[in-house]
Design a protein around this nucleic acid. Structure first.
Length: 582
RNA sequence: GCGGCCGUCGUCUAGCCUGGAUUAGGACGCCGGCCUUCCACGCCGGCAAUCCCGGGUUCAAAUCCCGGCGGCCGCACCA
């Protein structure tokens, strides 16, 4: 056990003892991958969320908005999103030694054929036919089972209606995209953000708060016109330096990141999209505001086989922590048109958006035309019904279906493609419909919470000081009578009551010596200690003590109510609070 | 899930190997009181552990055995 590992243990110990977080349901033995946030942890997390809002929502509020959608999600959504298919692994267990293997990997290895998309019973059959044994102990293998990382439940009293807990918040933003788009009066680009809980039924979560079965995601789905992919805000960040490990560098086993400006990263085609690059820059500022320096952050591109099924480029935003090295606190994905186009195909709803051209353009388009005469011939009196159904449907979707299947199932009939004609015509178009592309920055709140604590954790003269950023610290000020005695106590209580009215989070502490109370307050990261002493009674002043330097200034009580909130927001320096105490 | 190590007051730990004299001890913490004019002061008193849960062996189990749950490490897994 080296020093670095100790740091994790010390933080967990502090977290449990002082009320940041601990294992859930521990009186029943606990459950791996579930944690409770205590009184301090809950506020700390809220402050981190609020900081995220500042960076991602509030500064872009004219085109990025926040919504809330449910955790419980019907099956159809995850069929469309691909999660049911891709979030599942076929697992087979050895009957002798109990070891578990990926059934598809095993079969592919032994037979040399690809078995992608095969059902569990098909894989079981192949294993039996080829007499595939346990690669470790050569024992017989059992039935292939699906292991899904999705938590499953039923919606309502009928067990047929299967629902899942979302493993990411994104799908709620895609399925309600059209509503938000309309509410935002049909403008692109449009960002839809959400902070919400998600569930992933991890096989073996360890690493405490780092890998959870239920956690909070903070993400933005940012929709834009792929023909207008440039980011007008780029100049604000284009000279920011980011530390980056590209896919090519990873293939070449380079572990040291290169430092490039955002502009260079785009120019060298390391980053495929300007918005993606923009959010990398915003993201590192956000994480820096939590007290994690830039040199402890890095963006690592995921290789194709490491990427999620929906992504064409993904950067993990990594932060260095003591015990596990670089951990992922965010994924920045270019999801392209994948999600919306899947939802269009599966729901048959039009989720495209319309953009008017400045000048009308001549565009060659394919048009679907029905042979009404033949339709009448084949379907008789049903043809009217069919025609109506066709005219009510989106022609482009029908055209796609016709092309892929060779027929159209509509109004309860199966219409062969011979009854349709596809005409290519030139048309003057005033605009076009298209599927927006999506860039997604997605943060894990609990991991950020842990990393924030770790970077705040310092030891001074043998005492723990949590140097949390002032606006992130769960409690802003501690009010302390120098000694636990009247009339100091009375005045201190009055000041405490008044501070609460300023909506600051404050505590009052009179137990033990003043030194002990300073130490207690440092340990949970309270940036300021306000001490009422005997001079306070004479001239209505108090001392303020800085957590990090232990320096003190003296300030008029009335001014303290105004200046302390400003100091917490970072608008005043400590020295500006009052006159130094020698 | 597999293998290794581990699980005692809120926290850190002594005791476990070599079952019984410990009412399961200590330190820190916390609470109350005294003291105290600025960095975990001191004193007094108190709170706090059916020794993770369940079963077994035994006259007797924190201690030995089995199972479960949980933690850490390694393997696998991590869209």
């Amino acid at each position: 056990m080296n020093k670095r590992e100790d740091l994790y243990e010390k933080i967990v110990e502090l977290a449990v003892r002082r009320g940041f977080f601990w294992q859930s349901y521990e009186i029943y033995g606990g459950v791996a991958g579930l944690v409770d946030l205590g009184p301090l942890g809950a506020v700390l997390k809220r402050n981190i969320e609020e900081k995220w809002r500042e960076w991602f929502i509030i500064r872009h509020q004219d085109f990025i908005v926040e919504i809330e959608t449910p955790m419980i999600t019907p099956r159809a959504v995850f069929e469309a999103s691909g999660h049911l298919e891709h979030f599942t692994d076929p697992i087979v267990e050895c009957r002798r030694c109990g070891r578990k293997f990926r059934a598809d990997h095993l079969v592919e290895e032994k037979t040399g054929t690809t078995v992608e998309g095969l059902k569990p019973y098909e894989l079981t059959k192949i294993i039996k036919e080829n007499d595939i044994k346990c690669p470790i102990c050569n024992g017989n293998l059992g039935e292939v089972r699906e292991f899904s990382l999705l938590f499953q439940t039923t919606i309502g009293p009928y067990s047929e209606n299967v629902g899942f807990l979302r493993p990411e918040a994104a799908q709620g933003m895609f399925t309600s995209f059209k509503r938000v788009y309309e509410a935002m009066r049909g403008k692109l680009p449009l960002g839809i953000g959400q902070i919400g809980r998600v569930g992933r039924n991890e096989i073996s979560p360890r690493q405490g708060v780092i890998r959870l079965r239920e956690f909070t995601i903070m993400e933005v789905e940012f929709f834009f016109d792929p023909e207008e992919p440039s980011c007008p805000l780029l100049p604000e960040v284009e000279n920011d330096e980011i530390r980056l490990i590209s896919g090519d560098m990873k293939k070449a086993k380079t572990k040291e990141p290169i430092v490039v400006t955002v502009r260079e990263g785009l120019k060298k085609k390391l980053i495929v999209n300007e918005w993606l690059a923009y959010f990398l820059a915003i993201g590192q500022k956000f994480v820096k505001d939590l007290g994690i320096p830039l040199e402890k952050q890095v963006f690592e591109e995921k290789l194709p086989y490491e990427r999620a099924h929906y992504s064409t480029q993904t950067f993990d935003q990594l932060v260095k922590v003591s015990r596990w090295g670089w951990i992922e606190v965010a994924g920045h994905s270019y999801r392209g048109r994948y999600d919306l186009s899947r939802h269009i195909a599966y729901s048959r709803k039009d989720l495209t958006v319309y953009r008017q051209f400045r000048e009308p353009r001549l565009v060659r388009i394919e048009e679907l035309e029905v042979d009404a005469e033949k339709l009448k011939e084949f379907y008789g009196e049903n043809s009217a019904k069919i025609l109506r159904a066709i005219s009510e449907s989106d022609k482009n979707i029908l055209l796609k279906e016709l092309e892929s299947k060779g027929y159209l199932s509509i109004a309860g009939f199966r219409i062969p493609k011979e009854l349709f004609k596809v005409k290519v015509v030139e048309r003057e178009m005033k605009g076009k419909r298209f599927i927006p592309h999506v860039v997604e920055p997605s943060y894990g709140a609990e991991r950020l919470l842990y990393a924030t604590l770790e970077y705040a954790y310092t030891i001074k003269e043998g005492r723990v000081i949590l140097k949390l950023p002032k606006d992130i610290a769960p409690i802003s000020v501690a009010v302390l009578p120098l000694v636990n005695r009247e009339p100091l106590v009375n005045l201190a209580r009055k000041i405490y009551d008044n501070l609460k009215l300023t909506k600051l989070r404050a505590i009052y502490d009179s137990s033990g010596s003043i030194g002990r109370r300073y130490a207690r307050s440092d340990e949970i990261g309270i940036p300021l200690a306000l001490t009422v002493d005997y001079r306070s009674l004479e001239n209505n002043t108090v001392t303020l003590r800085d957590r990090d330097t232990w320096r003190q200034v003296r300030i008029k009580i009335e001014e303290a109510y105004k200046k302390i909130p400003l100091y917490i927001k970072g608008e005043l320096t400590f020295e500006q609070l009052g006159t130094p105490v020698s």
